[in-house]
Design a protein around this nucleic acid. Structure first.
Lengths: 125, 125
DNA sequence: CAGGATCCTTTACGATACTG
DNA sequence: CAGTATCGTAAAGGATCCTG
């Protein structure tokens, strides 16, 4: 944010690189879905998460959650129940993603008709 | 936006599905990088795009651009030069993604130190 | 219930070479 | 320059079974 912002070219690269940095944590077919689900649905157990995200298998969900936990975006809490249940929740850091996810959701809402009209026949119900 | 928003549960699913819908167009390791590059860098030729995005191969770039063109997010214009050059540019529809990309870039900027400190050693230069 | 282990199929992605 | 063709690896994804 020093040299980089002085020229237009530098400014562009600066923001392009910022996108790159962000996406490093968010890359993967399911990351944003999972984070969005936890953002809008709140604390949730593994199976509920799997159902809400929709279409993801247990293996993938498990793997993606481990990634997200490593990156300190979600927490995993084993509950004292029988059989055991596990709760996943956004961390405070994870919640800083809210503007991103909100904007994505809003775009989906705003362009819902456009998207469906042009590109597909079977909208998400 | 009718039934879905009445209950909290419905509201959540509504936004979760909106995220899903948006991501359908944006999925893939490179889509958002490419769109961001075209947003911040403006109209650009194939090779420039490849260099600016950084790290992407010609095959992937070509394939992703075809996807984006199909989804009417970018236009492809063959120029009358020798040898031929091709310019890629965001469509008006593509430009509606600006809030999403801006938010992602801003998050990357805001949490740059956090990201580097915690998760990696070699920041994007 | 939460998920790991295994096996198998299908995409995604990458490197290199080649053409109009 | 802007790609496509070809080949090869890695990751995604599904199914089934298994365990604490």
């Amino acid at each position: 944010m020093v040299e980089a912002q002085k020229s237009t070219v530098g400014y562009c690269r600066f923001r392009i690189n910022a996108v790159k940095d962000s996406m490093e944590l968010l890359t993967g077919k399911w990351k944003i879905h999972i984070l969005g689900t936890l953002l809008y649905g709140g604390k949730m157990r593994f199976m509920d998460l799997q159902r809400e995200v929709g279409g993801i298998g247990a293996k993938m969900l498990s793997k993606e959650l481990q990634d997200l936990e490593l990156n300190q975006l979600v927490t995993r809490t084993v509950m004292n129940t029988k059989p055991i249940t596990v709760e996943y929740e956004l961390t405070e850091f994870g919640k800083t993603l809210e503007p991103i996810i909100d904007t994505i959701a809003q775009w989906g809402i705003d362009y819902r008709e456009t998207l469906f009209g042009k590109f597909k026949e079977n909208p998400t119900d």
